[in-house]
């Protein structure tokens, strides 16, 4: 069995600072991490490998520095890594990104047929959740999004049964391989890298693929292949009136003054609050 995991290197958002005057991101020195959602996908693939001995190839489209993220995946136990990198790929929106990833997956499939393709449910930087569906459509594979559990996986009979998070519950779906699975967060926890894998990860040759390796149609990649563009960047609008500062010498005085003002400005609020509490009382709901 051969599994591909698509990952992305993203800035560590916990460490991003916003410039107080210009409101822009200060990217300098911000460390990068593997998109945290992708780690759930990688760990799921690794568990399948533990059980079946499947081979795992991780792929990412990104700048040369993304090599670091791929090596990290190797240290967790992935077998192979491909960095899809070319300056014509930059500036891609989700449509152009899914084009490049799908083209690379086709090339990989031609070398070593793929049974399953994993992605995270979304990235923490773009937050779109569109690339997984895009890849599935472009490859003509079944799409299984927000998967919380793989119940059955039968490569010989080419079928898979998963639990998928829907709005009001969980859908249990039976589908066919090859499929594209986007993993829900919190479904597992990435393992610790073992010593042998860490040594291997540091030395192993990575494959670097460019436009020729994936036979890219240049009208479909990068900025050119992206129908959406950022036309404007702006600061959030402050309301016409700034917040009213509640005065008071003590916290108690501030609290009293606030409630007076609140119930004066929003006359229905006190009644609504009482009614709400009555209802809660009736239902016996506890916080």
């Amino acid at each position: 069995m051969h599994i591909a995991v698509c990952i992305k290197q993203v800035p560590d958002s916990a460490q991003i600072r916003v410039h107080p005057v210009t409101n822009t991101i200060m990217r300098q020195g911000v460390p990068t991490i593997i998109n945290p959602y992708d780690l759930f996908a990688l760990e799921e693939a690794l568990r399948i490998k533990d059980e079946t001995g499947a081979r795992i190839t991780v792929l990412t489209m990104g700048p040369p520095q993304a090599e670091e993220a791929l090596r990290k995946c190797l240290s967790f136990g992935a077998d192979d890594a491909i960095l899809i990198t070319d300056k014509v790929f930059s500036g891609a929106d989700t449509l152009a990104t899914s084009y490049v990833l799908a083209a690379a997956l086709k090339a990989l499939d031609a070398q070593d047929p793929l049974d399953l393709i994993f992605t995270g449910k979304q990235t923490i930087d773009g937050d779109t959740a569109q690339v997984g569906p895009g890849i599935a459509i472009r490859l003509g594979h079944q799409l299984l999004t927000y998967v919380s559990k793989i119940r059955e996986l039968d490569p010989a009979n080419r079928h898979i049964v998963v639990e998928r998070r829907a709005e009001g519950g969980v859908q249990v779906l039976r589908s066919a391989l090859p499929a594209v699975v986007t993993m829900l967060e919190g479904t597992n926890e990435i393992r610790f890298a073992g010593m042998p894998d860490m040594f291997r990860a540091a030395r192993q040759e990575l494959k670097r693929w460019n436009r020729d390796d994936i036979a890219a149609d240049l009208t479909q990649v990068g900025l050119k292949g992206s129908p959406t563009v950022v036309a404007q960047v702006f600061g959030p609008k402050p309301k016409a009136i700034k917040a009213l500062r509640i005065e008071g010498d003590t916290p108690e005085a501030i609290a009293e003054a606030f409630i007076d003002k609140l119930f004066t400005d929003f006359p229905q609020l006190e009644a609504a609050l009482l009614e709400h509490l009555d209802q809660l009382g009736q239902q016996g709901v506890t916080q």
Partner: peptide, 23 residues
């Protein structure tokens, strides 16, 4: 932008090769 809407939007946009802005 629900689990259903996002699942469908990404697939439809790619099938139609049109742009989609999330969230």
């Amino acid at each position: 932008a629900t689990t259903q809407g996002r699942d469908l939007a990404g697939s439809v946009a790619t099938t139609l090769l049109t742009g989609l802005t999330a969230d």
